[in-house]
């Protein structure tokens, strides 16, 4: 369960005021709004990337407002993908698994599983610098899914995909 209670933040001229939201396990929720209204800011507050001026974020009834980013188990895929440019596709996807206490073969199995789901298995050994926007987005998605978060936040998840891939990705997300 994810709950936002009276979230407010002021960033220069921009302001979000008293945002309330409640989502139950398994819910899909779409934030709609004009460009610049604060959709990304709200996602970043939930993920812990920025702290609200006031209000609270609850996950499973626990107050996580001041919880560290790496402890939240809230995965976010940014609109600009934030792919690590110095790592290969495989290394990007493996990044969340580095410190996990599982065997290398299990790690490889997980990488292959999510790479297949995102239709990027053929790209695993490639550098990320020459990939298309859609490919980068799927790498970011596979990398986030492999970290097994409790909650997925997707910022413009279908923006760079063609119609065929959009359908595939919708199915993957379900």
């Amino acid at each position: 369960m994810l709950k936002l209670k009276d979230i407010s933040i002021k960033l220069g001229e921009f302001q979000l005021k008293n945002i309330n939201l409640e989502l139950n396990k398994g819910d899909y929720y779409v934030l709609l709004g004009k460009s610049g209204v604060g959709k990304t800011v709200l996602l970043e507050i939930i993920a812990g990337l920025i702290k609200p001026d006031s209000g609270k974020v609850f996950q499973n009834n626990l107050d996580i407002t001041r919880e560290k980013i790496q402890k939240r188990k809230v995965g976010i895929v940014f609109q600009d993908y934030s792919i690590f440019p110095h790592l290969t596709v495989k290394q990007n996807i493996a990044y969340p698994l580095k410190r996990k206490k599982i065997s290398n073969s299990d790690k490889n199995e997980l990488i292959n599983k999510y790479a297949s789901l995102a239709s990027i298995k053929h790209l695993l050994d490639r550098n990320t610098q020459n990939l298309s926007g859609g490919e980068l987005q799927r790498v970011a998605l596979a990398r986030m899914l492999v970290s097994n978060p409790n909650c997925l936040l997707l910022d413009e998840p279908l923006a760079s995909l063609d119609i065929q891939l959009k359908g595939g990705l919708r199915n993957l997300l379900r």
Partner: peptide, 19 residues
């Protein structure tokens, strides 16, 4: 943002610095 993404993927600040 790359550092925050790494944190979001569960890495510690020290690991983010070195990787």
């Amino acid at each position: 943002k790359l550092e925050k993404t790494a944190l979001n993927l569960g890495a510690s600040p020290v690991r983010v610095f070195f990787t």
